[in-house]
Amino acid sequence: MEIALLAFFAVGYFVLAGADLGIGMLLPHLGRSPAERRRVLAAITPFFLANEVWLVTAVGILAGAFPVLEGELLSGHYAVFTTLLLGWVTRDAGIWLRGRVDRAGWRAACDTAVVAGSWTVALSWGVLLAATVGAAPPVAVPVVAAVVALFCAHGLALAALRLRDQPRERARRPFGASGERTVYALTAGGMVLVCLLAGSRLPLAENLADPATLALLTPTAMVLVPLLAGTQVWLWWSLGRIRPQ
């Protein structure tokens, strides 16, 4: 059950926030002017925190239900996680702060932070996922490239769904005749697969927390999951139907 909970939140992160990352990576491609880039980012701004929190919760569950593994994973990949966090913070700061100062230089700096941060996070995930599936350096390179490409494709699919006019056309171009919903479903499926594949290589069952802890944590989490999912559905239902002008 604990493994299912961890998988639920980890998959949720890669599907939801993965697309946000892809949009951040391809920001210069999707938006060719500051105004277009503003619209591209506006497509994800109301949701990006709510999407990232799936990872925060996944790490929380890892710490609660698999504490020893959590310490081993995070300290074992200390440098990669440091890079991931630096990219994550830089990218989020760019999104949070972009509109705060009405100057061209400021917006350009924030756009740069979003793009550089998104690439850093995506590459760090590539390296971490490659290490998890046991890909050694020569094999790891195509694995990292595939993960990065998947982030980009998933981002394009979301961009096609959420944007209009020119940026939407740019996002749609590589899909040919396929509809953006189909592409989003496919890239989301790819995210699920990658995440589950990497997760299946982790020694989860051997590292469960003490039964006394799980007896409290697991039922509470199971009760909360529908409620948490419900809050996000409300968010998407309230704000997701509007495409930024």
């Binding site: 929380g60 020893v68 959590e70 927390a209 802890t213 944590l217 948490l228």
Partner: peptide, 14 residues
């Protein structure tokens, strides 16, 4: 972790 991890998990979930 059996104690601290649980409270960290609850913090994120609740």
């Amino acid at each position: 972790g059996n104690v601290l991890g649980g409270s960290l998990a609850m913090e994120t979930l609740v």
